[in-house]
Write a protein that binds this DNA or RNA. Structure first.
Lengths: 167, 167
DNA sequence: TGAATATCGTCAAGTATCTTGACTATATGG
DNA sequence: CCATATAGTCAAGATACTTGACGATATTCA
């Protein structure tokens, strides 16, 4: 643990984006580690991101693509992997000959259950670290931020023209 | 904009991890889009994550590896890319024949400057969306969370044995 | 009905990021 | 000098994501 301090440890960034990123990474690392330690070795952060968009009752693959903010190919490849792992299964959609329904297998539902438990444990740890009030304020701010998406007409430079609907 | 609601839009997750992840992704997408729109086409989120650990005065490559939470190979590959783009340059460390110093080029410093500007604009947008108070509470909670890293002896399942120092 | 068009999913190739393992060169401590 | 640790590199493979093209089914509308 010999740390040279000849270079006066210049400060790391301290703005919302950086803080959010660091906090998000920390949470995910902790969660993923716990999931793997619980036996779900197939678990990865990318897969978690997709699973978060799949309700327990299952969904249409096309609906998933809308929810997750990626391409249908990315979604499909993640689904391929999760299906190969036996976490999900795809069935033909009886109401649309083109579509597929995605739903959890028993294994997948077990993982969700364990995930919920781990999630609560991590939350408790957070509350222990910063107190209930701060934690509540954090959740409140994050929810408010999410709810206000799309409001406030982009302050110039943030040109995010999402127009094309191809691919 | 035809949205079918035959499947009663099951709720998305609503816990810290998910919220942090979503907020972080949104911030990064907005920032990266603005950076690219400003002419820094080499900008990517992975690279941003590394650059955040490089102070304006430059640093030793080895010090970078400690700061960023990845392997030296990952750091090196990112540095290779950034050096090839002309954003950074690597010089031999006069104080250690093995070491290299990493520092910004003119192009890199220009990008930092633009990044700071964009960052402030996004922050203003956030404050507009959720109000000064909530924003301050958000920053406060995130800072507190970061400061309390390592406290609270891991609630069991979160086994993160970081011991080996190889590779 | 039947042709034009859109939507859903797939296949395939390429890029970016990250991981693992092995290796060279320099430093440090006897 | 020798043993060991540290700094950086080279190379191969895995994972995630992007882009482009395609076949099958649905929908629209003349």
């Amino acid at each position: 643990m010999v740390k040279e301090l000849d270079e006066k440890a210049e400060a790391l960034p301290d703005h919302v984006g950086w803080r959010l990123w660091q906090a998000s990474r920390a949470w995910q690392a902790q969660f993923a580690a716990a999931m793997r330690a619980t036996g779900h070795s197939w678990f990865s952060e990318a897969r978690a991101g997709l699973l978060g968009h799949i309700p327990r009752g299952g969904t249409r693959q096309a609906a998933l693509i809308e929810r997750a903010a990626t391409t249908k190919q990315a979604v499909q490849q993640l689904l391929d992997g999760l299906e190969a792992e036996g976490v999900l299964e795809r069935l033909p959609d009886p109401r649309d000959g083109r579509g597929k329904l995605v739903r959890y297998t028993r294994k997948g539902l077990d993982a969700l259950r364990d995930g919920d438990r781990i999630k609560l444990q991590i939350e408790l740890g957070y509350i222990g670290r910063i107190g209930e009030q701060r934690f509540a304020a954090l959740m409140d701010a994050l929810r408010a931020l999410d709810a206000a998406r799309g409001d406030v007409p982009e302050t110039a430079a943030a040109a995010q023209d999402e127009t094309s609907e191809s691919n």
